[in-house]
Nucleic acid binder design. Structure first.
Lengths: 348, 348
DNA sequence: TGCCAATGTGATATCGTTCTCAAAATCGCT
DNA sequence: AGCGATTTTGAGAACGATATCACATTGGCA
C-alpha cells in the first residue's frame, strides 16, 4: 500500500507557512519587484526550511515554454557529435536550461518522431545536426510557430534557422594543398556522397585546390551503407593509383585506415592520407593521422548560446538571422609524409 | 508584434470539432474502454486533421510523473559513457520515454544540482553512473519518495537501487592472468585510486591473479587530477621495473600509451600492456591494444529496461531489487605480446 | 415487466504555477 | 490636508489534461 508522496511541498505550503498568499511567494521565487525586503527574507527562509522546489510541469503549463532545449544528433558514437553534445549540455546547464537528448541514427522516421515529441513537450528551442532533408518541412512548421532552431555542422537552404558551421571549404582546401605541396599529383577524395552541404563544401574545397594546381580531381563517393574500404583498395590497385587520399569525415578516415592496415599498405610511403575531422587518438595511431581539426565543442557552445540568446530576446517568433562560421585547423602529423611538427592554424 | 501561437490545438478544440466532450477525446487518446467504435474513429480523424498533440506538461502536472527518464553520466568524451548513453536513449525512445541528459563532469556540486532538477521536473526515474558518494544522501531521499533509480557501472553500498555492472573482478583476473601466462613477473596496476567499487573490483581481480601466481602485486594508484604518465615512466626507470602494465580504465590506458610513445618505449618488448575497457580505435593503434571489453551498450540497454520495468509495475515506491552483472571479454591484440589471434570470451 | 449491471458520455474539480486585476498601504507633492 | 502615484499584497482565473462522479442508455435475466 504505497503512499505516494513525491514532491509534496507546493507553493501553497510555503505561502501558508509564511502566512502570505501564493502570489507573494511566486514573486520572491521569480525575483520580481514589488516585494518588501523582509518578506523576501521570510519567504526564502521558509523555502529553504521546507525544501521547496517549484514544479516545472506547472510552470511550463502556465508559461507555455519549458526551460528545456532539445538536441538532435545523428549518433553519439562519433566523437565529433558526442563532444558537441557535451558542450551543448554544459552551456545549457550554465544558463539554467536542461538538455533533452535525441540520437536519430540518421533515420528519418526517428527524426520526425523526435521533432513531434518536441512539440508536445513544450521544448523551448531546438539544436539539430540534421540528418536528412525529410524533416525540413516539419522544422519549417515549427519555425512558423515560433520555435527557435539552430542547425549545427550542416544546413539546408530555404529555411530561416540559425546556423553554426565550420569553414569546410577552406579546411579541405588547406588539407589538399598540403598534399599537393608534398608533390602528390593523383589525390583521391573519399567519402559519402553529397548528403549534406558540409560534405559538399569539403568536396568543393578539395576540387578547388586540385584544379588550382592544374591536376585532375579523383573521387570515390559512395552512398551510406556501402563499405568504403574495399573500394579504396580497389582504387589503389588500379593502373594509375592515387598516391594520396583525402577523407571527408571521421568514419571515412577510420574505414580507410582499417582497410589500409588489413592490406598492409604503408602510410605515407605507399599512400599518404589526410582526414577531415580530428579525433583524440589520432596521434596514437600506427601512423599518426594528419587531420583537419573541427572545433566540435566550440560548435556546440556557439550553437547553444545562439539558441538561448534568441530565446531571451524574442518571444521566439522573431527571425533567426545568425550564422556563425568557425575556423578549422590543420593538425600535421605523419600520415601526410611530414615529420611531426606543428599545428598550422587556419585563417582566411 | 509577435502573436504567439505555438501548439494552439488543445483537447478542447478536438472535442469541439467532434461535438463531444473533452473526456471522450481523452479516452480515445489513452485507449480506454467505454467509447463506441464510431466515436473512436470520429475523434481519431479530428485529431489527425487538426494535427493535435497532447500537451505533456499538462499530463505531467495532472499525473505527477512525466514519461521522461534522467541520465547522469560523468562525461560524454569517454566513449564508454557515450556508447552507454546512446543505448539508453534508444531503448527509452522505443518504450516511449524521453531521455534527459546530464553530464556532471565528476563534479559533486553539479551532480547534486542535477538531481535536484530532476525532482522539480517530475522525472519518472533516474539512471546514473555515480561520480561521488556525495550525492548518495540525495539519491536516498529520492528513493524514499518513490523515485526508481538504477546505477550503472558503479554502485555504492547501503542504498536499495537497481544495479547494472560488469564482472570486474573476473575481467581483471583474466587480463592479469594473460600477462602472467606471458611470463611476466612484475606487473604494475595503474589507475585512479579506489574511487568507485568498479575500480576496486578490478584492483581486487588483479591482486587475486598476482597472488595466485605467488607474485608481488605492484600498484600505481593516483588521485584524480594527477598526471599519470610521468609516474609510469618513473616506475619503468626504477631499479626493478615492471615488465607489464595493467591499466584500470580507458583514460588510464590512453594516458599510459601517450607517455610510452613520447618516451619511445616499445610495446610489448620493453613493457607489455593490457587495458580494462576497450575502444573502437584500439586495433588501429601503433601497437594494437589488448583490452578487456566492457559491453557498454548492453549495460545501458539493461539498465534502461530495468528502470522502465520498475516504472510499469510498481508505482515507484516498490523496492528496486534487481542486480545484473554482465560478462566481459578479453580482446587479445598485440600489446600483451601475443600475435593477434582471437577473442577469448569470458565466462565464470 | 422490473431491476441490476454494464456501457457510453459529459460537467466539474483538480494538478501547481503564474497572470490579471483590484484593494490596501505608503509616499511625495502642492 | 488632499490627491494622485507608487509600492505591497492577495483573490481568483487561467494553462491543458485527467479523475471522479453523475447521468443516460442499453442489455440480460428472473
Amino acid at each position: 500500500m504505497a503512499i505516494r508522496s513525491r514532491s509534496v511541498v507546493t507553493i501553497a505550503d510555503v505561502a501558508r507557512a509564511c502566512g502570505v498568499g501564493t502570489m507573494t511567494v511566486s514573486r520572491v521565487i521569480n525575483g520580481k519587484k514589488h516585494v518588501s525586503p523582509e518578506m523576501v527574507q521570510r519567504v526564502e527562509e521558509a523555502i529553504a526550511r521546507l525544501n521547496y522546489q517549484p514544479n516545472e510541469a506547472a510552470r511550463t503549463l502556465k508559461g507555455r515554454t519549458s526551460r528545456t532545449i532539445g538536441l538532435i544528433v545523428p549518433s553519439l558514437s562519433d566523437p565529433f557529435f558526442s563532444q558537441c553534445a557535451h558542450a551543448v549540455q554544459q552551456v545549457a546547464a550554465e544558463q539554467g536550461y536542461m538538455t533533452m537528448l535525441f540520437a536519430c541514427e540518421a533515420n528519418r522516421n526517428v527524426e520526425a518522431e523526435e521533432l513531434s515529441q518536441m512539440r508536445s513537450r513544450n521544448i523551448a528551442g531546438i539544436l539539430i545536426v540534421p540528418s536528412s532533408e525529410n524533416s525540413l518541412e516539419q522544422l519549417q512548421e515549427l519555425r512558423r510557430n515560433g520555435m527557435p532552431v539552430v542547425m549545427i555542422d550542416r544546413t539546408f537552404a530555404g529555411i530561416d534557422v540559425g546556423e553554426v558551421m565550420v569553414e569546410n571549404i577552406e579546411g579541405a582546401l588547406r588539407a589538399t594543398n598540403h598534399l599537393i605541396d608534398h608533390g602528390h599529383q593523383r589525390i583521391l577524395c573519399v567519402g559519402y556522397d553529397r548528403e549534406y552541404n558540409s560534405i559538399s563544401q569539403r568536396i568543393d574545397g578539395f576540387k578547388k585546390a586540385v584544379q588550382n594546381a592544374s591536376l585532375q580531381p579523383q573521387y570515390l563517393l559512395v552512398n551510406r551503407g556501402v563499405a568504403i574500404g574495399p573500394r579504396v583498395i580497389a582504387a589503389l590497385r588500379s593502373p594509375k593509383p592515387p598516391t594520396a587520399i583525402f577523407t571527408l569525415n571521421n568514419v571515412t578516415s577510420v574505414a580507410v585506415l582499417t582497410a589500409l592496415k588489413r592490406e598492409e599498405i604503408r602510410i605515407p610511403q605507399q599512400v599518404a592520407i589526410i582526414g577531415f575531422d580530428d579525433f583524440d587518438l589520432a596521434s596514437l595511431l600506427a601512423v599518426p593521422l594528419t587531420a583537419v581539426r573541427q572545433p566540435a565543442a566550440e560548435l556546440g557552445r556557439h550553437a547553444t548560446r545562439m539558441l538561448i540568446d534568441s530565446l531571451r530576446v524574442g518571444n521566439g517568433t522573431g527571425r533567426m538571422p545568425s550564422r556563425i562560421v568557425l575556423p578549422t585547423e590543420l593538425i600535421v602529423r605523419q600520415s601526410c609524409g611530414c615529420e611531426p611538427i606543428s599545428r598550422i592554424p587556419h585563417s582566411k
